[in-house]
Design a protein around this nucleic acid. Structure first.
Length: 305
DNA sequence: CGGCTGTACTG
DNA sequence: CAGTAC
DNA sequence: GCCG
């Protein structure tokens, strides 16, 4: 019953949009015919009511627990989230995911996200003047409430380390920023913390995943902080504004993949298999547009006056 | 013409 | 490396 | 339907 991550069953169960059906029609003619004609699959009729299925998917909702771990926990005899609290094989992150299960699931009203974005911007400027802090994700897509906060950070001088080792304003920023946010009790628990900008081995994106609280409250929210070098910032912002379908663009036929265009010179050709391309520094101002899901998303650098 | 995002952490 | 997350 |  477990959904295979890379197996066709996965797509077949979880995404039955027409393009898939057409695409996979050759492989699953009978089942797909039934889905197309009746809108469902009789074989899966009792799927959601099955105890094992329900329990395993509940466990899978805990941050840090995926299908494999969820299944193992079920096989060990666990049946409720309370049971899991006594399981010593859980990782630190999974413990936190469990402890704050309800908190994390609680959606954040838009106006609170807006306040926290301002708080984050102010706190960041105290450490690094002119730093740019933007809340992406569903907030930037205009939703009335958000499940978490995706914070994308850059600095006009934040060059890529491999290009300009000594003048990278983003280097070391995240470490200080996280410490400061913990001092003021905004950040509460860490899930993942990875610093790359201090070495020259990778893309130079620093990332923090953790839990935060709205000022004066104890309710935990998921928050991601990402610090981008300026030259790939636009792509970071696009990626973390999403939505998921746009970014990961799913294994769909190419016509659904995002196509990129830059409205101001130079012309930018971005391979759909490439996660980012470089924007020339000397091009003055620019706008990056992404067309996907029948609408445009655009990015302009915030430091352009 | 087959194959279908890409990358990094934790343990 | 497997499992997980974005 | 686009990429390698």
């Amino acid at each position: 019953m477990a959904a295979m991550k890379h197996g066709y069953e996965y797509w077949y169960w979880y995404d039955t949009e027409v393009p898939y059906e057409v695409w996979y029609a050759g492989k699953y003619p009978v089942r797909i015919q039934e889905i197309v004609s009746t809108g469902k699959l009789s074989k899966l009729e009792h799927f959601e009511t099955d105890e094992k299925v329900r329990t395993v998917s509940l466990f899978g909702e805990v941050w840090g627990i995926g299908p494999a771990t969820a299944l193992k926990l079920y096989d060990k005899g666990h049946r409720t989230l309370d049971d899991l609290k006594n399981e010593d094989s859980l990782t630190n992150a999974q413990r936190l995911g469990l402890k704050y299960f309800d908190d994390i699931k609680t959606r954040i009203p838009r106006h609170e996200v807006q306040e926290m974005e301002q708080l984050l911007q102010k706190a960041a400027e105290e450490i690094l003047p002119e730093v740019v802090v933007i809340c992406g994700g569903s907030y930037r897509r205009g939703k009335a409430s958000c499940g978490d906060m995706d914070i994308v950070i850059t600095h006009p001088d934040g060059k890529r380390l491999i290009n300009l080792p000594s003048s990278s304003s983003n280097i070391g920023f995240l470490r200080k920023y996280v410490k400061h946010l913990k001092d003021i009790k905004f950040l509460r628990e860490d899930l993942i913390f990875s610093i790359h900008s201090e070495e020259d081995t990778d893309t130079g994106v620093d990332t923090y995943f953790g839990l935060c609280t709205y000022p004066g409250r104890e309710l935990r929210h998921r928050i991601d902080l990402k610090v981008y070098p300026r030259d790939i910032y636009a792509f970071g912002l696009i990626a973390w504004t999403g939505n998921d379908v746009l970014n990961r663009s799913s294994p769909r036929p190419g016509r659904f993949r995002p196509s990129l265009e830059v409205s101001f010179r130079p012309c930018l050709k971005v391979s759909s298999y490439q996660s980012y391309a470089l924007l020339p520094e000397e091009s003055g101002t620019w706008e990056l547009k992404v067309y996907a899901q029948k609408s445009y998303q655009s990015v302009t650098p915030h430091w352009v006056k």
